[in-house]
Design a protein around this nucleic acid. Structure first.
Length: 136
DNA sequence: GCCAACGTTGGC
DNA sequence: GCCAACGTTGGC
């Protein structure tokens, strides 16, 4: 079981949109590192949903429900997408500022490699963010 | 809206 | 295969 963090701009596609749809393919990724991460995803893996730009916060948890397959939004075989489904909305969003302020999360790729839209996180990092989401 | 960081492209 | 130029992302 692996843990991931996936970013989306909430005015384009938000966690609530995902909840409304029940399931969505995560397509449109055009970055090799992000793609490689998606290829490494296994059905049943867990991913955090991060809102970039406006919220700048982790807002929910998702399940990977289908492993990487050809991205339907392009003819190029280089690109893939995965299917995700909502698992749980965080009680309190965990903001980027809070993540940056937490020394336990100093090495998280979200901060270290800000532009990467799909990154892997450790179980410790995942657990810490979940813990933060449960406290006021 | 600006700018820093970083990935990609293309000329050599 | 290097590196400059350019484009894109995302935080502020």
């Amino acid at each position: 079981m692996n843990y991931w963090l996936m970013k989306s701009e909430p005015d384009v596609f938000s966690y609530d949109d995902l909840v409304r749809k029940g399931k969505e393919h995560w397509d449109g990724v055009r970055n090799y590192t992000a793609r490689n991460n998606m290829r490494a995803m296994k059905k049943g893996d867990t991913a955090l949903f991060y809102h970039s730009n406006i919220d700048k916060a982790v807002v929910g948890i998702m399940n990977i429900v289908k492993e990487a397959y050809q991205d339907p939004t392009t003819e190029e075989i280089a690109w893939v997408c995965v299917d995700v489904a909502p698992k749980e909305k965080l009680k309190n969003p965990v903001t980027l500022a809070a993540i940056k302020a937490n020394p336990k999360l100093a090495d998280i790729k979200l901060v270290k490699q800000g532009r990467l839209s799909v990154c892997d996180i450790t179980k410790a990092e995942f657990d810490e963010i979940i813990r933060m989401s449960k406290q006021k």
